[in-house]
Write a protein that binds this DNA or RNA. Sequence first.
DNA 1: AGATAAACATACCGGTCGGTATACTCGCAG
DNA 2: CTGCGAGTATACCGACCGGTATGTTTATCT
Lengths: 204, 204
Amino acid sequence: MTTVTQPTMTPTAHRILDTAAGLFYEHGLRAVGVERIADEAETTKKTIYDRFGSKDGLITAYLRQRCDRWHDYATAYVKEHQPEPGPDRVLAVLDALDSWMAVNSRGCGFVNAYAELAGTGHEGLPIIAEEKIWTRDHYVALLSEMDIPDAARRGREVALVHEGAIVQLTAGAQPEAMADARALVGRLVADGVAARDATAGTVG
Amino acid sequence: MTTVTQPTMTPTAHRILDTAAGLFYEHGLRAVGVERIADEAETTKKTIYDRFGSKDGLITAYLRQRCDRWHDYATAYVKEHQPEPGPDRVLAVLDALDSWMAVNSRGCGFVNAYAELAGTGHEGLPIIAEEKIWTRDHYVALLSEMDIPDAARRGREVALVHEGAIVQLTAGAQPEAMADARALVGRLVADGVAARDATAGTVG
DNA sequence: AGATAAACATACCGGTCGGTATACTCGCAG
DNA sequence: CTGCGAGTATACCGACCGGTATGTTTATCT
């Protein structure tokens, strides 16, 4: 289930990555030096460069790990809280996001990383896009399994609301953003269900 | 109309701020040093520190300027393209955003700045929130002037889509995000109009 | 003419950056 | 017992960081 970031991750490498992940997310990529990571991970710069090659390599590993973590978290949350297809399953993703944000109060780590990496040819940039695409396609899949018409478009619309909620919740300092998003997505899904049933009625 | 950033902005100070604004937006806050700003603005570090006090002061001035710029741009765009209240006036804000993004391809400068400033007690943080609140309230105002019920909630929902579109367009590498957002907002406004007319019919 | 502010030029400060080099210890598998 | 991978410790590199100091030139306004 959990994707392994490196074929061989030594215990210290794990500790380094976890420490770096926390610091990168909390303070930003450029704000955190390699020496600080070494100190807080209780290791040395030498070991970091032996394991990850460069600071950019460590940043890439951080993004990879965070990407996998969010996918695993969202998938597990939906499976646990809404095992069956239906409108509530879509909303469960927003609930997963809500509880995720409670522990990740600095917003979307990928958007934040994009702010510092865009324009450079950094290896981590495709991972950022990958995460956005995964979340979008996840919504599309949850709508498709309900046989809702135009699931692709509707899924993209839900993803827009999803991303907007994170921005408004953090940079926008708007605590009700999550509730607004949930209400709006609830209506969007209901519209999709209505469209499906209307079509079924026409056909049958 | 245009808010002056400083009571007295010397010509060189203007040049410094414009140069810094371009560099900060394009490469990030920490990625750009004061010396580079001085070089590209064809001035000296001394003059920068004389005019802005510190790099943080310059960053704050940048955010203030960008905030005012976006407000002026959006307001002027709506006034020019949709002088009268109505559904198209709300969509005109998204059109303004669309043309704004064509020249600002690195996403929302405030979200990007938030990525680097959050957690610090930086003076610029309130300006970031201010911009998000302004855009949200702008939508609320455009809906209110149409006498649409629940304009506050609907305006917040439109703002969610607005912010989501920027993220999907840039970090998400999804070119159709703007069109999706426009279509969705068009339906949200239409729903509002329908709710207004339904209520009017009930009352009248 | 004198005063003032703005900008220029340059050198310097302590500190940190990413990254490298050298040399050592430890545990384990052949 | 030997070789090796992993990790430690520390010193070092050049480059750059934000910020300061000193002094000069230029233009404007009384």
